[in-house]
């Protein structure tokens, strides 16, 4: 287990908390709990319910989405400093992808109550946090569009389908 000081130092390097001051960050770090995952362990599956987001402190995880049978498409791999699960935190919807540990992993868990406390106790820190979050969302949206284009291109190339002259 890392000390609170370690957690603050780790959060300080994350893009999400770049504009949050030290005092707020220390309070925020105190509301996070650590969760280890062994290699191969599934944190949650697509369709599960949840209300927590996760920060990857150490190790690597695979984000995948079911395609058919035992086949899933790898959407992303995440390492230290990355985060996931925030969609369920905000809209209470089912998990949109499966998360599985690729190595031994340590996560920091942020639940809805902790986020609410941050918003109430430190609105300025919360605003900085949400602004960074929006920037990451935009990047992910772009990456998602790129992935759709790549998958479409793969399908056309793999089948030899001639769309131009149809």
């Amino acid at each position: 287990m890392g000390t609170p000081a370690d957690s603050v130092a780790f959060l300080r390097n994350m893009r999400l908390f770049r504009n949050v001051d030290d005092a707020d960050l220390a309070t925020f770090a105190g509301s996070l709990r650590e969760q280890p995952l062994r290699r191969g362990q599934i944190l949650f599956r697509e369709g599960d319910h949840g209300d927590e987001m996760f920060l990857v402190r150490a190790g690597s995880i695979v984000v995948s989405k079911a395609v058919t049978g035992r086949i899933e498409q790898v959407l992303a791999r995440m390492g230290p400093g990355d985060f996931f699960g925030e969609m369920a935190l905000f809209d209470r919807s089912a998990r949109s992808a499966t998360i599985q540990a690729d190595t031994e992993v340590t996560l920091l868990v942020l639940d809805r109550d902790a986020l609410a406390r941050l918003t109430t106790d430190s609105p300025r820190a919360a605003a900085a946090f949400f602004q960074s979050l929006v920037h990451v969302f935009i990047e992910r949206l772009r990456a998602s569009g790129e992935l759709v284009a790549e998958v479409t291109r793969w399908g056309l190339e793999a089948t030899g389908l001639d769309v131009e002259s149809r």
Partner: peptide, 20 residues
């Protein structure tokens, strides 16, 4: 560049085993 897909294939009968 030719397109590539990264697929996760779960091992038969195992809950956690997989390969990419």
């Amino acid at each position: 560049r030719r397109a590539r897909l990264e697929l996760l294939v779960r091992h038969e009968g195992e809950t956690e085993g997989f390969e990419v």
